[in-house]
């Protein structure tokens, strides 16, 4: 029933916990795993400015290298892994990819890298 799992990660330690769950579920249910990392880039930032380009390039480089590590970790456990990188607002990109991939289960950590502290 749950055959396609989408894991969205920011590589924080809480996301790492979500990764553990995603891998455990993918293993026992023989599901495929898509791992998405979103380079957070607000639409107000002009991607033509070189400083923004540098910033975005850094984000993407970091995300790709982390994704390579994650992929090899998961593949060692015998899971079929696809990785994806997106740019934009994380919550929106995750939903877009979940729909595009027709995912059955979305796994995300509830606390990531702190940006603004939530009030609760």
């Amino acid at each position: 029933m749950i055959k396609r799992i989408l894991l969205a990660t920011d590589f924080s330690r809480w996301a790492r916990r979500a990764e553990d769950y995603a891998c455990a579920l993918a293993c026992s249910w023989k599901a495929s795993l898509t791992v998405l990392s979103v380079a957070e880039f607000p639409p107000e930032l002009n991607p033509d400015y070189s400083v923004n380009q540098l910033y975005l390039g850094d984000l993407l480089k970091h995300a790709s290298s982390q994704l390579v590590d994650l992929k090899s970790r998961a593949e060692r456990r015998g899971i079929a892994v696809t990785t994806r990188v997106a740019t934009g607002i994380p919550s929106e990109e995750v939903i877009t990819v979940a729909q595009a991939e027709d995912s059955d289960l979305l796994v995300v950590g509830t606390r990531g890298r702190p940006a603004l502290r939530m009030s609760c």
């Binding site: 330690r13 916990r17 553990d20 890298r113």
Partner: peptide, 17 residues
């Protein structure tokens, strides 16, 4: 990231279902 003992305990728990 801020870490406290409770967080560590939760993070170290094995994945069971």
């Amino acid at each position: 990231e801020p870490a406290d003992a409770e967080d560590d305990g939760v993070l170290a728990r094995p994945v069971t279902l």
